[in-house]
């Protein structure tokens, strides 16, 4: 069984468009090997599964995850983490000196490297007497289970984890490494679909929404950024992926987020400008009086 040529072309152009990763011709076997388990789970053939991807965003996310599986690393891109330690954290420590509590949201946490990377930095830089809570959400319950277990293979550990942090925050369990309990205790997992309402989700000092908007269409992207306004503190930060920070915002949103260059990354911060009132046009209609 080999996947149809159109299926491969569709998938490779999807991956190229969304992640800049390139699957050249001849890599059909690889794409097929990665998608087959998902197709089986969805109860269809690989070709049928590929057709599904154009309409089903949740499946598209899973497929892109499977096809970009090696892209997950600790402290991915470094820049955001540097900006967090150097700039955002000191500012938040000043701003939250009465509550001494920080709240961070790793939205679309995947296997948890982002949430735990932040947990490691907080362990190193949070002054005594402070506490931090990291909410890790994902649409995949399998991923959430992985985050909770906090175990990573040797190959995963090799990706971007400084050796000093590895020995400090992980213990060996069989052929894997497990994150220490004190960092696990900082991270709470929860199932959440970013394109559905965020019920009971509080306000955060930092929201990491990196490399996930690329999986959604334009309308959903804008909708997510609109709803994120209620979940980022007025002096908080929203971090998108490096290729997503230059997204064009729709007219209603453009005045409500401002971009701030912090080191090598751009953070989005709420401006406090209220939402435009819905259609005041009717009151301007001449009454003819």
């Amino acid at each position: 069984m080999t996947m149809a040529r159109e299926s491969f072309q569709m998938v490779s152009s999807l991956v190229r468009r969304e992640t800049s990763m390139v699957y050249d011709e001849g890599k059909e076997y690889l794409v097929e090997a990665r998608l087959l388990p998902l197709a089986v789970a969805a109860g269809c053939t690989v070709d049928e599964y590929c057709r599904k991807l154009s309409i089903d965003f949740a499946e598209r996310r899973k497929a892109l995850d499977a096809l970009t599986i090696n892209e997950t690393s600790w402290f991915r891109d470094q820049g955001p983490y540097q900006a967090f330690t150097d700039t955002m954290l000191p500012a938040l420590l000043q701003a939250r000196s009465t509550t001494r509590r920080l709240r961070i949201w790793s939205a679309a946490c995947s296997s948890g490297q982002e949430a735990y990377s932040i947990a490691m930095l907080l362990d190193q830089h949070l002054p005594a007497g402070w506490s931090a809570e990291i909410l890790a959400t994902d649409v995949s319950t399998a991923m959430l289970a992985r985050v909770k277990t906090g175990r990573y293979s040797q190959v995963e550990m090799n990706r971007g984890m400084p050796a000093t942090s590895l020995v400090r925050y992980f213990t060996r369990v069989g052929s894997e490494w497990e994150i220490v309990p004190k960092l696990k205790a900082m991270v709470t997992t929860r199932h959440l679909n970013l394109s559905a309402p965020y019920l009971g989700v509080p306000t955060f000092d930092l929201v990491l929404l990196r490399n996930v908007l690329i999986y959604f269409d334009k309308t959903t992207k804008a909708d997510i950024l609109r709803r994120m306004l209620s979940h980022v503190a007025s002096d908080g930060y929203l971090l998108l992926g490096s290729s997503e920070s230059t997204l064009d915002l729709p007219p209603d949103l453009a005045p409500r987020w401002r971009r701030e260059q912090i080191g090598r990354v751009q953070a989005h911060r709420p401006t406090g400008v209220p939402a435009p009132r819905p259609s005041p046009a009717s009151s301007l209609v001449p009454t003819g009086a």
Partner: peptide, 23 residues
């Protein structure tokens, strides 16, 4: 050693140096 751990190790060695084309 647990056989599942031995399997995981051999699998990682294989995938790292021979790629994923042939499992």
């Amino acid at each position: 050693p647990e056989i599942t751990d031995v399997h995981a190790i051999v699998d990682e060695v294989w995938r790292s140096f021979l790629g994923e084309a042939e499992p």
